[in-house]
């Protein structure tokens, strides 16, 4: 795709894209820190996770502001319109990912205060999967790679399976050792947080696909060939 005749328009779109990808990176890092805090009971890490959430909220507002300015000044159409609408919606989803990561961090602190505990391995598997989905979908967005967005979208099923397995595992541990019920309840909620992060990454993948191709990504249409027919 060629550049806009107005260079400042390209600069604003680049700025928007940078802000969204930075938000994605921050959410991924926040999730990583939240899981490390869970293992290490490190309250400083929890504080960092909570602080990141405030930063994500501010970045979401910044993206909204820039998008509003671009709507008013540029009257965007076609790919530009889809790009800006997708950016606004993506930042809302990424901000929610941050909320879930923050919840995990807060639970890490609550559990640490209650006493020693072991993190079920399936929670780590879920977290790794969710982090990979977040990372890959942001890469797909930056590289404008619709196929990579489809890959992320298709991966959600795997995370859902892990969530079911983790929930069963945690419930089983709870029945085996009823005295761990508090911890296990926290673990169940963390599993749910991770599953929701995966859902949000999946929704971001749909937006990335739409922004690139102009077509909805749903059960009936998983192809990702570009809709434009005569690009150079």
């Amino acid at each position: 795709m060629t550049s806009h005749i107005l260079k400042s328009y390209d600069q604003e779109l680049d700025e928007l894209k940078t802000m969204v990808s930075q938000m994605g990176g921050l959410a991924e890092e926040q999730l990583d820190k939240a899981m490390r805090a869970l293992h290490s009971c490190d309250f400083d890490l929890v504080d960092e996770v909570v602080a990141s959430d405030v930063q994500l909220d501010q970045m979401e507002r910044d993206v909204e502001q820039l998008s509003m300015t671009m709507f008013a000044r540029r009257a965007p159409l076609a790919d530009d319109l889809r790009e800006i609408v997708a950016a606004i919606k993506m930042t809302t989803l990424i901000e929610r990912m941050g909320d879930h990561a923050k919840n995990i961090g807060k639970r890490a602190r609550d559990m640490a205060l209650e006493g020693p505990f072991t993190v079920p391995p399936l929670l780590d598997s879920m977290a790794n999967e969710a982090k990979m989905m977040v990372s890959n979908v942001i890469d797909a967005y930056v590289r404008r790679d619709a196929d990579a967005a489809v890959d992320v979208w298709e991966h959600d099923e795997h995370l859902d399976s892990l969530h079911s397995a983790a929930s069963r595992d945690i419930l089983s541990r709870m029945m085996d050792a009823p005295e761990t019920m508090n911890f296990m309840t926290h673990h169940l909620m963390i599993a749910k947080n991770l599953e929701r992060i995966g859902d949000q990454a999946t929704n971001v993948a749909e937006l990335v696909h739409y922004a690139i191709t102009g077509r909805e990504l749903d059960q009936r249409n998983t192809t990702s060939a570009p809709s434009i027919t005569d690009d150079a």
Binding site: H4, L77, A78
Partner: peptide, 18 residues
């Protein structure tokens, strides 16, 4: 046409590209 044109030339024109 204004959200998802199928031609690159349409897209370039309506979005202010050469």
């Amino acid at each position: 046409i204004f959200t998802s044109p199928t031609s690159g030339r349409t897209r370039d024109y309506i979005t202010g590209r050469l």
